[in-house]
Amino acid sequence: MLFKKGSINKLNQAGLGLRFGAIAGLLFLHIPLLLIILYAFTTEDKSYQFPPPGYTLKWFEVVLNRQDIWNAVGLSMRIAIISTFVAIILGTLAAGALYKKSFFGKSSITILIILPIALPGIITGISLRSTFGVMGIPFSTWTIIIGHATFCMVVVYNNVVARLRRTSPNLIQASMDLGANNLQTFFYVILPNMGTAILAGGMLAFALSFDEVIVTTFTAGQQTTLPIWMFSELIRPRQRPITNVVAVFIMFITFIPIVFASYMASKTSESEGSTK
């Protein structure tokens, strides 16, 4: 490169308008999330009054003792964990098969993997629902899991395929040259290389499944997952302060895997940079 990294900064400082625009945009993205946290502490329970007339911790205690909410949390967790597990297996297999080989119909298969997340959830949901109906499969936790795994697969696939493409074949050759057999190469070289990608993909799949409401609506029978509970409260607010606390809870549950996954992603890009 002719120019040093960042030389543009000196030459061309961000104008006032641009800075203002960027900051305003970021505030637009984050103020709503901060408000959610603020409202969890409000003493007002009949309306969404701002600013809150007073602050209290009592709603957290109320939620702690609400068995129905904890049942919903447990169900959502169970579904998210199993769906993620299935999505990891399917997504990794697909990535392993598709990352290098080119063959007739490969692009159609790639589209097929992306399709469940590209199409509106309602179309996926109704399609699965009518198939379950026609085949006489009763709606259960497992029908929800089938729906979730279908669209979670793609995030695992994307992460793993990206990593496989970047993994140098020299690494594997070196391992073989140094006397490792195939299995050793797999467990000591390939798996540690893939591990963080699979984990990052799995984390995102978990967050996606834990939060999903549309496909769940159509593939669930009487089950109430946490998002379904939340959705019914959104349509007819009956217990505002409790909904506020649950919203904060959902937010933090999904934050953890996301921050973890982005940390993994940034870690890999660093280690890659060092090899170049």
Binding site: L35, F50, D211, F231, L234, V259
Partner: peptide, 29 residues
């Protein structure tokens, strides 16, 4: 900044819609 943009992207869709119910309400911010 990247994480600041990824967080809202991946965080709960319903919670984010809910936050706007708080914001847009007649007695809201």
């Amino acid at each position: 900044l990247f994480i600041a943009i990824m967080l809202p992207l991946w965080s709960s869709y319903l919670v984010r819609v809910y936050s706007w119910k708080l914001i847009l309400a007649k007695e809201g911010i």
